[in-house]
Each structure stands twice: as structure tokens, then as C-alpha cells.
Design a protein around this nucleic acid. Structure first.
Lengths: 235, 235
DNA sequence: AACTATTTGTTCGTATGTATG
DNA sequence: GCATACATACGAACAAATAGT
């Protein structure tokens, strides 16, 4: 068995990018921190400007830093969350490597479990956040915004489920559906009447896991059938 | 309400990168195709070489192309799959935005459903692939390789579950566990005795959804308890 | 084995755009 | 308005890798 590591001939830009990436992973640079400027990086890595710029572009494309220009500008470490995951999924969707119905199917599998876990972990602070999100959903009036905000409850549930991986996947999934499923514009109330989340939220707040799971399942099935019905009517 | 779109001042490299990305999404360049060379891109986009290079680096960082050097070299469109998703998760893991136990918990949620769907869709060709994967797992002897190949069955199951989003998530998840869970090296047979997958595979091939789900659940619980036991013993 | 053509990798110098104070 | 600090962009040159002759 070969215990040697292959000597990889890294490109300078890739090398610099990886070292900076590790520095960020190690916590040497935290969210909000500014990476050294291009000039400083040139001195630190002993490479040319071009190499440094390519490396930073790589970091930016990886969603790790955000580049601002002007005085006080530079590469700032971003708060990383599920955004990158969502982008990756979006690309797969765009390349036809998956379809919306498949995403919906996964949603039907995951979200009831999210609700169950949320019910298991729900604190009084979480309950307050849930009520607030539910309240807020009925505030806005315009359609697209409304749909966005109405899903807030689902986002909050993902946050309180206590599993950050599940949270990231669920949020990515919800975001994907938001960004891609709005091809038609039916009257809001037909597809999403107010008070739709009430029973679900109550189950979670009551910390009744079985009921939370069941309510979420019922809610999703109800929602899907509404969408299907409206689609039939408007197309 | 503002109906105007903000005039965004894109960086030249970002702009070129997006246009190339769209070309790939549109299918104007397919997997294996070579993008125009740097020189050609300079003429096509009327920008400098630096800009073109940064754009290509962005595509590479996004996992869309692979750059080869030398004559006949260039940027070649990659076969995109779950790899990008896996990378995104890996970054989240490295940044401490999630932990292995959380990933394992999601695995316990997802894979039984994968098994159920696989059982639902399993064709005779799929069955052959499963048997083959199961057979192949006992061939190799060295530990790390063995563990890798033993999971083959799980990969095949993900492939035949019929939902490409679920497949991508599951594969990413399995890959993550492979790459990060190998901190100790117990004797293989203690943790993964041969024939472990037999009952699970049989259930799937029999297209018995309930049994497939149950067998997968039992298999995962069994595996986890073995790992825990071995960890206790060796640490 | 040597040479050539093509393509990416790297460097440098210079000029411009943009935000801060 | 101006100086400063930073990113953005261009063009020319040379180095290195690779395929074909």
C-alpha cells in the first residue's frame, strides 16, 4: 500500500487560495475580518499581484469572502451559512440534474422530521419566534413578498430543530422552491390562506412530536394539492 | 413598487464568468467540451487576459470546469454531480457550522427513506448492480479502502431511489462521513462484518418497501452501536 | 530524441475607478 | 477639492507544460 502522498504541482493561485481558506477555517480570520490587502499578500506569499487576485477571486467564488473596493476596501470574510449549499443545488437544478418535483418530494420527507425535532426542542423563546413569524406573515400584501414571508415559519422551524445540517438542507430546499416555483401568480388566499400554520405551530409549541410531524405532513399535502388545483385552473 | 431593475456594475471577470456559466447551463458547452482558449475569449469578450483568467478561475472554483495545461489544454466542462454539494457541506463542517453527529442524525432520517424508494423502484438491472456492489465489498482487504468500498451498497441504493436530489444529498452525506470519520482504525470485521448488507439488499430486491426501510434502520443502528463500542475499546 | 506549435502559468509596469477622510 | 488606499483593468513579456511531428 502506498503511504506516500502524491506531490501535487499546485498552481500558485490555488495554493494561495487554499492557504487562505485554511486560515479562515482555523479561525485566524473570522467573519467580518479583513484579509490582508493585495499588496500585503504579495509580500506574504512572495507571488505576483495576478496570482493574489486569482486566489481571492477563488475565495469569493467559494462564498468565503466578499470583496469591497475603495479605501477601507479589501476582502472581508463572510458569515458562511447555507447559502453556498443553496447555490450548489441551484446549479444542479439549472443543469437539469434534478427537477422541482424531486425537490418537493424530499421536502415531504424532511420537513415532517424537522417539525418533530422542533417540537422536541422547542423552548419558550423559540415559541415566541414562531408566533412572531406567523404574525408577520399576514402583514404584507403584495403577492411575491407575501409568499416569501409566509414561508418564514418554515425557516424558523428549521432553525429550532437543533440539527444544523438538517437546518442547512431544509433552508436550501425552501430557498430553491421560492426561487424557481413562482412561474405563475395565483391569488394568494387560494394557495395560502391565513392561519394555515396555526395548528402546526401549536403542536410544536406544545412539544407534541407526533402531532407536529402529522400536522406538517398534512400542511404540506394540503399546500401541494392547492397548488395543483390552482395550476389546473389558471393554465 | 419599484419595477426597475438595479443597474448592477458587475466586475468584468464576474460578468464573463456568468456568461460562460449560462452557456454551460444552456448546453452550448457540454461535459467534456473545451471552452474557447484564453486568447479566443479575449477576442470574444473584448477584455484583457487577466479578466478572462479570473473568470475561468471562478468557474473552476465553482466546480464547473477543469483546467488542463499544455497544448490541447484549456478549460474543459466537468461532469457535474453531487461533488459540489459535498464540497459546500465540507466547508460548513470545517468552519464548525455543523458536526458529525448532526450529519449522522440526518443519515438516520434519510437513508431508511432512500431504501424505501429504492425498494419501490428496484428493477432487475438495479438488483444486479446491488448484488455486484455487495460482492465487491468483500474483495478488498486493506482497511481504509475496504470501508470505502463497503459503502458502495449505500451509493447504489441512492442511485436507484429515483430522486436525484435525494441521491445527491445522500451521496454527499456518505462522502462527508467517509472523509471525516476515519480518525481511528479498528479491525474491519468488528465494525463491518461481511454479509451485513444481505438482508437489506434482499428486502429491496423483493420490492418490500416496509421491510427495506426497517432493515436500513436496523442496519444503521447496528452500525452506530458497533462504532461506539469499538471507540470505547480503543480509546 | 529533438523540435515546434499551442495553451496555460506567472510576472511586471502602468493606468483607471472607487470609496474614505 | 484633494490626497490616500484600495481594487480593477490592460498589455507585453517570458516560463512551463503538453501534444504532435
Amino acid at each position: 500500500m502506498n503511504t506516500f502522498k502524491p506531490v501535487k504541482q499546485l498552481r500558485a493561485s490555488t495554493d494561495v487560495g487554499q492557504q487562505l481558506k485554511e486560515a479562515i477555517f482555523d479561525g485566524r480570520y473570522k467573519a467580518g475580518d479583513k484579509l490582508p490587502s493585495e499588496r500585503e499578500l504579495i509580500d506574504l506569499f512572495m507571488v505576483s499581484r495576478t496570482v493574489v487576485r486569482e486566489a481571492i477571486k477563488i475565495l469569493e467564488a467559494s462564498g468565503l469572502v466578499e470583496i469591497r473596493q475603495g479605501a477601507m476596501g479589501g476582502a472581508f470574510v463572510k458569515q458562511v451559512d447555507f447559502e453556498r449549499l443553496s447555490d450548489a443545488c441551484q446549479d444542479l437544478l439549472m443543469m437539469g440534474k434534478m427537477s422541482l418535483p424531486e425537490i418537493v418530494q424530499v421536502r415531504m420527507l424532511l420537513e415532517p422530521q424537522v417539525a418533530r425535532l422542533a417540537a422536541k426542542n422547542c423552548t419558550s423563546a423559540d415559541a415566541a419566534k414562531l408566533y412572531d413569524a406567523n404574525q408577520h406573515e399576514d402583514d404584507t400584501l403584495e403577492y411575491p413578498t407575501t409568499v416569501l414571508l409566509r414561508s418564514q415559519v418554515h425557516f424558523v422551524l428549521a432553525e429550532i430543530c437543533g440539527n444544523r445540517f438538517l437546518e442547512a438542507i431544509t433552508k436550501s430546499l425552501l430557498l430553491l422552491l421560492r426561487q424557481n416555483a413562482l412561474s405563475f401568480e395565483p391569488p394568494t388566499d387560494e394557495i395560502h390562506p391565513s392561519g394555515l400554520h396555526d395548528k402546526l405551530i401549536q403542536a410544536v409549541v406544545d412539544r407534541d412530536e407526533d402531532r407536529a410531524e402529522a400536522e406538517m405532513r398534512a400542511h404540506l399535502e394540503d399546500f401541494c394539492s392547492r397548488v395543483a388545483e390552482v395550476e389546473r385552473k389558471y393554465k
